[in-house]
Design a protein around this nucleic acid. Sequence first.
DNA 1: GCCGGAAGCA
DNA 2: TGCTTCCGGC
Length: 522
Amino acid sequence: MWLVSLSRRAKMKAGCSIVEKPEGGGGYQFPDWAYKTESSPGSRQIQLWHFILELLQKEEFRHVIAWQQGEYGEFVIKDPDEVARLWGRRKCKPQMNYDKLSRALRYYYNKRILHKTKGKRFTYKFNFNKLVMPNYPFINIRSSGVVPQSAPPVPTASSRFHFPPLDTHSPTSAVRPGRFSAGSLAASGQESASGADRKAELPELEDSSAADWRRGVDLLSSSRSAAGGGLGHQKRKPDIMLPLFTRPGMYPDPHSPFAVSPLPGRGGVLNVPISPALSLTPTIFSYSPSPGLSPFTSSSCFSFNPEEMKHYLHSQACSVFNYHLSPRTFPRYPGLMVPPLQCQVHPEESAQFSIKLQPPPAGRKNRERVESSEDSAPITAPTVAPVPPRIKVEPASDKDPESLRQLVREEERSHEEGTVPSSRTTEEEKGTIFARPAAPVWPSGPVSSPSEEPLEVTEDSEDRPGKEPSAPEKKEDALMPPKLRLKRRWNDDPEARELSKNGKCLWSGSGPQGLATAAADA
DNA sequence: GCCGGAAGCA
DNA sequence: TGCTTCCGGC
């Protein structure tokens, strides 16, 4: 089978690998790319995060490293020395120790592959956004249900994966560089934690996935009448679809971010249980961000309709909300509204999978400022809809005038719909800006007021959106033509001016429902 | 324990 | 590029 042969290759490449990948059952908690050194273009050796996943995936190392209960993607290194030793053996570095290993792990902070769980010793957390999205842009999901807010936009148990052509003889070609490869994870890793990082943290999502989505949607809008067939301009067509992880119960660890769904999958072509949260509540959307591989351009697995897209967008919103991802991870599509879906988690689910919102990894300097407020107000996400998470706002690059237009467009849209206009926050520190978007609106069920919930304090209390904004002004704002509003803001808001001057992003959210709004003006 | 700069290596 | 090694600082 494909994954077996790949893992063999991976092992061969790993050189002095001592950690064998279980080849028959034994708790596959991760898709195979996680174990492939090939998925790290530019790096012929296994990467540490691969290795960590590898250990996490194995029962026999559970006493050494294991998923943290109740926290998706969070893991605890129970025996740091042992982990270091294993890593050292894998890398043929007998001098390896936890200090060095942890240094390597810390390099992942900037790359946003990992972040540290503060206050917990030896505890780290994978960044789904970085790990999953770039590795699954080729995913096409089709199932039914609701996207839980606690899940990143990853496939569910009832997902169908559509793979690009694989040259089984060429490991490198099996993985498309910069797409679902670790390289895309690391693509942003060159930048420092400060301004440059902001620039880089999104490209693989915004430029690759989301942009592809946009293109796909555009494509779709123009060719939908063609019934999804025969789009001539695809870059690449998914010639084959490979079944992966088709065995039920392959992801037995409920704390693995890729744990198996307790729900029966639909048994599509490819059942890929990845996110426990998602899989608990199957999704309805088709998901295939890559135009070359996507249903938009492929007749073989075309499956898309605006409704599904809405669901997808909403799920994105939920992910952004819960994973404090950059709002720009949320794709924007002209003319597509994200309806107030049930971004809601089953009570049990929310209890079981409470996601603690954490700020994106901040540089030391940032943290110094951040921590004091943050630590004092921990928060659990799924049940606290009204509390908007801190969202890192990307700097509006000069090369992206579209951002501003988008802002205007979305303001217009929200204006038209009478929703609270999106705005932005002005957390500014060496290029790091965090904005707090309005929380997604849960249409059903009572929503506790933000004041009832422990508010996660942001870096700057003064720009807490939704926190007692000047009501009259807001109303006035809403009635004002968006462009005028923009202008007014420009004139009135020195902070915003400053932001713009520094090239910071004024992100305006994406949907009228919640996630959309980055922050309300003070 | 954790952080991140710096230099070096493959 | 992705660490590894070292280290000063918190």
